[in-house]
Simulated assay, not measured.
Amino acid sequence: MPTAIQKMRKTRAAFHAAAALFTAGALTFGLSGCTSYDTTAPSGVRADRSHTDAKNAGASLGTVDCRKAKCVALTFDAGPSEHSARLLDILKEKHVPATFFLLKNHIAKYPELVRRMEREGHEVASHTWDHKILTDIDDALIREEFERPDDAIEKLTGKRPTLMRPPQGRTNNHVSELAEKEGLAQILWSVTAKDYTTNDSALIRKRVVDQTKRDGIILLHDIYKGTVPAVPGVIDELKAKGYVFVTVPQLFAPGKAEPGKIYRP
């Protein structure tokens, strides 16, 4: 039988093991807490109409009611680019609206494409100014990343963006607080083709189609040469599966994205 000393040693060992486990758990919680945030799904926005005037709710639905239809939002980051004109031609031909999260000097380089996006019914939003990781910079720089693209887009389209996509999807509650002050909601995604890793258009198309589900938000980049050629196939295959393409605001209707909140299917 174990002696009293052996029992004491076992008790101390168990105590130290528990303490180490607690410390590790606390550290994990602390690290994750730095980048933790809550997200809201599109269906949650549609269900919560407390901030929507019920009398005018029907007008915000447009031609699609995503409470009934099998909706999906096609979004493009970091443009415009030399490929965007062809993309807009494809979207127009196939009667598909999209949401564009635009970046810094691309806005100044292709002003007519920005105007065309707005004119042809697409949602024009921000991907920040210089693609800085928002969780790594100070408040003054974060505000600049928010304000500069919004100012540039508003000057071209007459409409100030209300949606923003954080670079690499990296955000936290503090970034959300600053976004709220700028009137911006953050939009993440549920589908990515990782088109920044390949120019294989067939592979990009397959990745998108395989991942897409109802209320999905598809992330693509119209700055890469393999992406735009994949878009017709993406549209045709998803339409064949019964999907209806909408902008992000249409996906949320009759609800509306609120500044300071983060949205992800």
Rank of each mutant, 00 (worst) to 15 (best):
T135S: 07
R143P: 07
L134M: 08
F100S: 01
Y110G: 03
H106N: 14
R115H: 01
K104I: 03
F146E: 02
V124D: 11
M117A: 04
V114Q: 02
R119E: 12
M117R: 05
E123N: 07
L102W: 04
T135F: 05
I137S: 06
K132L: 12
T99D: 13
L103E: 12
L141M: 08
K109A: 15
I137H: 01
H122M: 11
D150H: 04
P149Q: 08
E120K: 03
V114S: 02
W129N: 14
G121E: 11
A140T: 11
F146V: 04
R143M: 12
W129C: 06
T135C: 06
V114N: 02
H131A: 10
H122P: 13
H106W: 09
R116F: 02
A125E: 15
F100L: 04
A125S: 13
H127G: 12
D150W: 05
L134N: 00
D136W: 08
R116D: 05
T99V: 12
E144T: 13
F101R: 05
D136S: 12
E147L: 09
D130L: 14
R115L: 00
R148A: 13
A108S: 13
R115D: 00
E112Q: 09
E118P: 04
D138H: 14
A152V: 01
L103S: 11
A108K: 12
P149H: 04
D150G: 11
G121D: 07
D151A: 15
L113S: 02
H106Q: 15
A108I: 00
S126C: 13
D136E: 10
E147D: 12
A98M: 12
I133K: 09
H106L: 09
T135A: 05
V124R: 13
D150Q: 15
D130K: 08
S126G: 13
K132P: 05
F101C: 07
P111R: 00
L113M: 09
H106G: 07
I142V: 14
F100Q: 04
E112N: 03
D138Y: 08
W129Y: 15
E144R: 15
K104H: 10
A98W: 07
I133Y: 06
D150C: 14
I133T: 11
H127L: 13
I137N: 06
Y110V: 01
E147M: 08
Y110K: 00
K132D: 10
D136F: 01
A125P: 10
R116T: 07
H131K: 13
A152L: 04
F101A: 01
H131Q: 10
L102Q: 04
R148F: 08
T99M: 15
L113T: 06
I142E: 06
E120G: 05
V124W: 10
L113K: 03
R116W: 00
Y110T: 07
L103K: 10
P111M: 03
A125W: 11
F101Y: 13
E120C: 05
G121V: 07
T135W: 04
D139W: 01
D138C: 05
E147I: 04
P149S: 07
D138A: 11
T135M: 09
R148S: 10
L102D: 06
H131V: 09
E123H: 10
G121A: 09
K104L: 11
